[in-house]
Design a protein around this nucleic acid. Sequence first.
DNA 1: CGTACGATCTGCT
DNA 2: GCAGATCGTACGA
Length: 200
Amino acid sequence: MGKLSASYYISDDVVSIANSLLGKYLYCNTNNILTGGIITETEAYKGVTDKASHSYGGRLTNRTKTMYEKGGIAYIYLCYGIHYLLNVVTADINTPHAILIRSIYPLIGVPEMLARTSKKTADYNLTIGPGKLTKAMGITNSLNGVSYLENELWIEDKGIVINEEDIYAGSRIGVEYAEEDAALPYRFVLNHNNYIKKTH
DNA sequence: CGTACGATCTGCT
DNA sequence: GCAGATCGTACGA
């Protein structure tokens, strides 16, 4: 319970962490605006052995160097020149595993998120998709490398217990170029309908 | 230095 | 269903 600690992020098993992040609460406090919600979709990227990963083959560049740092920080990068995508760096230093947060169910700071996204209704559509999520939460490049153990960006376990049958595991989105690794079941989606009601 | 393209979303048809 | 937006990153010259 409570904010996830440093040890949570240090495991080598990035796939299991991606699975276990479902049902956790993601919070972001930027510009004195607190936003957040329940994580409902994640994708694991398994470092140097995963052809879909930015760090495949040990690729180390100015962008990907964040992935090589110790687990528990954010890896944020620009996609298609438009969208910032939020990742959780896991494992120990020099093991560049990361988890892409693809969707949350919006619960905290909904009016602010609506204003940022020019949307009218606060259903799950508000923060479904990695680009929409970062826009709604005000997440940009400036949070790249920020620790999940501090008070700007963090994840909490609020005691929601997920049944395995409510989790869909399948292939990741937009990674067709990754050849045999494109089919790996590293994407996890939570059937949130069974959990959201408990929080209202 | 030049070029190709991407872990996407929106709006229009 | 599809094109367009829009730019940093990576890599080769």
